[in-house]
Nucleic acid binder design. Structure first.
Lengths: 187, 187
DNA sequence: TTGAAGTGTGATAGTGACTGTCACTTTTAG
DNA sequence: CTAAAAGTGACAGTCACTATCACACTTCAA
């Protein structure tokens, strides 16, 4: 990895950590970007260059791409929902940064404006997933069934995150994800 | 209805109409609240008192409550997803303001920030619906299955809206909703 | 019908997220 | 080592949104 890229990632981690700390202590709305800049030693201009907006400071996940990689390996071989469930478990369960992840999830679900930006991302992911499902079946455009399957896959993962984050993460995240997807079949 | 309430609704309709017009013509981001205030003859302060934020000017729907009423009559008698589907059809299909509704939907799906606020609302609706499902079965708190069912119900309706709005509303909205919910069973 | 209490409105000033620009520094590639 | 490329900080500006206050309009009881 190039020096530039390493510096960039290091700065982003530093900013995210400082921000999460401040958000937890003083509240999301009450913490200004300027305060985050001061705490992390990075200018506000650079924070905006890296994250684009305040919400993404919390939402940014270095390992974002993992779930797509995991999914790609499974899409042909398993039914869509199972493939997505297993990819999610592979990507999110047993992370070595479990604690950071949990704190970020709590901030997300506690602050509507962050949740709103997360939903914008989810909308994009949903149409990409639907396109992927269509492609896996050799169709050029997603059918309404593809769209619905993609929507169910993502909404169910969201339920799992919501409950896991709320219950003090009593069970493992993998277990919660499994339980959520089980509930999609017996309706 | 009191005079105050009538005035208020009339003002909100006027503001929403002016705003939709301006958004369509010049773009959502490029249209300032001040421009909407000037176009509708209502002060910016009052616009904020009525809608709370810019996004809600588009999202606000006078008949919002209808789907809940429809749902309440069905929840004991039908399986949850069918009840929700039929309630949605009753609430949204064949509206006499179909055209306004379509234009608003288009603005919503074309502008991420509006979609974000819509998602915040949907998050609230989802936990209310889950609570309702639990109550209908005599449980005090929603199980994970209730949460998942509520999530599927809302996500599926969202798929229906997305597709209907995109396809020039070729078929009736009721038809699109029916098709979407059909896809939830054969996964 | 009237007058007092209650409630909505407009104007104004202020905060903070976000954008665009420019001079300067650091990294990269030949 | 040097020229090009790319990132950084500082600064000025826009706009969504909040808080406040004087004023106007509803409401309701007498």
């Amino acid at each position: 990895m190039r020096l530039r890229e390493r510096n960039r990632l290091a700065a982003m981690r530093l900013v995210q950590d400082s921000a999460v700390e401040l958000f937890e202590r003083h509240g999301y709305e009450s913490t200004t970007i300027e305060a985050i800049a001061a705490a992390s030693g990075v200018s506000t201009a650079t924070i905006y260059r890296h994250f684009g907006n305040k919400e993404t400071i919390v939402l940014w996940d270095e390992r974002e791409g993992i779930i797509n990689d995991e999914l790609e390996q499974r899409l042909g071989r398993q039914p869509p929902l199972e493939a997505f469930r297993d990819a999610a478990i592979a990507a999110y369960d047993g992370r070595d940064d479990r604690d950071r992840f949990l704190r970020r999830l709590r901030l997300i679900y506690a602050n509507p404006s962050i949740l709103g930006v997360a939903a914008q991302n989810e909308a994009r992911n949903r149409s990409e997933l639907a396109a992927g499902l269509a492609a896996a079946d050799g169709r050029r455009r997603p059918t309404i069934a593809d769209d619905v399957t993609a929507a169910i896959a993502l909404a169910t993962l969201d339920v799992a995150f919501t409950r896991w984050q709320r219950t003090d993460a009593r069970h493992g995240l993998g277990r919660t994800i499994t339980d959520a997807y089980s509930a999609t079949t017996k309706r």
